[in-house]
Design a protein around this nucleic acid. Structure first.
Lengths: 324, 324
DNA sequence: AACGATTACGAATGCCGTAATAATC
DNA sequence: GATTATTACGGCATTCGTAATCGTT
């Protein structure tokens, strides 16, 4: 069994069982990959891949288990390299982040600017996707860090650190009735209008639905989007009232009015995640710390020792209380 | 980076930083090992080993981290092989168990007999040691399964399954006053005699101390041993009253009298442990099941999904309740 | 017919072992 | 002086790439 052979079989799976493409990605020849796969299979005495004559169709049940172990194993080789690089080039390397639109567009820019200034030699890769995609990218080792506000249950097998609470604002044009009234906004009132908000599974949408359910109102949601820019665009077209993360309302949005709605909906939590047992470069700790100042290296390490994410939540609730 | 190179550096650590011995254990030549180590170090650009001129003294801090990752990584290669062997030779392989004296001497024989009959082609290795040694052997991958009755806190990073509760008996010679009295035994009464029991850290000794502490009696423990045979020997010599696991009193002990003491001391729990994430061969599940009938493959798998051992305990408390 | 996997073969690399050397205890 | 690590070097195995072949879609 060779590390290369494991790299080969994992890459074949990644490339949808196409050895030719896998060979290209690996900068090697098709026959070489094919041969090493057969060698590994004969060494283990089993078929990893399900074949139809000469064509690979998929994984055998045993093969699927082996791929899963091989993936973890290859991640550990990256860990060894990272440990070594931390000593040889502590300020050099790459930081791969997966996140959703809201973070990428409104929260991360200033943090990345600061980070870039501190670590000019770290290559930053930012991948935007749905919570599910973010989770997959994290677990397949395609990114080092995930930032998410949704589907915390997905990340049970990762280390999930609470970053900050955020609230929603209602967005309307200045001539809209809601912009003129002085009374405090109610959920009932919002229910009267056409609403534009996030697509289900994005940016705290589940918390929002929950608030309407609780008062027994079926909201009239006419448009949904995965990002606030689209929401604002449709509000500007007069198609409805927008509900989005307050941080997505910026000083450039002079043609829109934001009405605080933090009293209507439960606060949502933005969280940062990484794979359990992963070696974190020092600059990664720093990035996490820039993103969320209470997440010092010491506290992150302490949190990782805890067995599940609810214990991590309790830890930080305690820390917040003590600081007050 | 090659798997062999990782095997080499780990084995050098195992052999106390002696490359010559490591080479012997690996059935290869000293220069070959030495060269591969230098190659790996130069590939990573760091020193794994602390050197004094040409002699290896120990690990660098970075090296220590790398060894730790390399160990986990090599365990995963064993996992891949195990998955393959499960398909090629489901009834063939090895089962390495670490346990304490009491289990090895009084509990396991009948189970091993049954297991051997079922799986004649599985090589059994039984290692006896202190709870600490058992834990180390398990975590270093030297054994597949650990059976323990002590120091559960040590096994937090493993999967720890509750097997059965057991109690203690007081062992005396037939002419001893305790053998003749008909009243129920009390802790106070026991405190009057010289006692012989387990060494601290073995076979539920901590539970025993706890019982004396609770009633504020300082027991007069004159001999301690790691196994019941030694305890019985000293009782036979008339040196004191023995307190040991009831299961260690067998039909061969006709010259001794056992007095049930389950009402005096809290029951102790025997537990079975394996590394989290380890691939268990089917015969291993069967062994666990023979050892503890309520631990079916399904329940063991379910328990492993849980995040910590207290959750596993709760799961089995629930199962026990439902069965009643 | 085109694409994709395997086989065949030659070149190059790399690993391993013996022998010799150097350094430490 | 004995033990232990490194260097040198030659043989062997393995891997990799190109070219050709075979099968599938």
């Amino acid at each position: 069994m060779k590390l290369q052979q494991l790299r080969y079989i994992v890459e074949i799976v990644n490339q949808n069982f196409n050895i030719t493409e896998a060979a290209e990605v690996l900068y090697t020849s098709q026959p070489g990959v094919s041969k090493q796969v057969r060698l590994l299979e004969s060494e283990l005495g089993i078929n990893i891949f399900e074949r139809n004559g000469k064509h690979i169709k998929g994984l055998t049940p045993t093969g699927a288990q082996i791929i899963s172990i091989a993936r973890e194993l290859l991640l550990k080789t990256q860990g060894i390299r990272a440990v070594a690089e931390e000593e040889t080039h502590p300020n050099k390397g790459s930081l791969r982040i997966a996140t959703t639109n809201t973070q990428a567009r409104y929260v991360l820019p200033s943090i990345i600017e600061k980070f870039k200034a501190q670590y000019p030699e770290v290559n930053l890769h930012l991948h935007q996707g749905s919570p599910n995609q973010i989770y997959d990218a994290l677990m397949l080792g395609e990114v080092d860090i995930a930032i998410t506000t949704e589907a915390q249950y997905l990340f049970e097998s990762a280390v999930l650190l609470p970053c900050y609470l955020w609230n929603r604002s209602v967005i309307v044009k200045p001539d809209h009735p809601l912009a003129k009234q002085n009374q405090k906004l109610t959920v009932e009132e919002l229910g009267k209008y056409n609403l534009i908000t996030y697509t289900f599974g994005f940016t705290g949408r589940s918390d929002l639905d929950h608030a309407f359910n609780k008062v027994g109102i079926l909201p009239n949601i006419v448009f949904t989007a995965t990002d606030a820019d689209v929401i604002k665009t449709y509000v500007r077209l007069g198609l409805g009232v927008g509900i989005m993360a307050s941080m997505a309302y910026t000083k450039d949005d002079v043609d829109l009015v934001a009405i605080d709605a933090s009293h209507l909906f439960q606060s949502s939590m933005t969280q940062i995640a990484f794979r359990r047992g992963m070696f974190l470069r020092n600059y990664m700790y720093d990035f996490i710390n820039y993103f969320s100042p209470h997440l010092t290296k010491m506290r992150v390490e302490e949190a990782e020792q805890l067995r599940d994410n609810s214990a991590i939540l309790r830890l930080f609730e305690k820390i917040t209380l003590e600081e007050k």
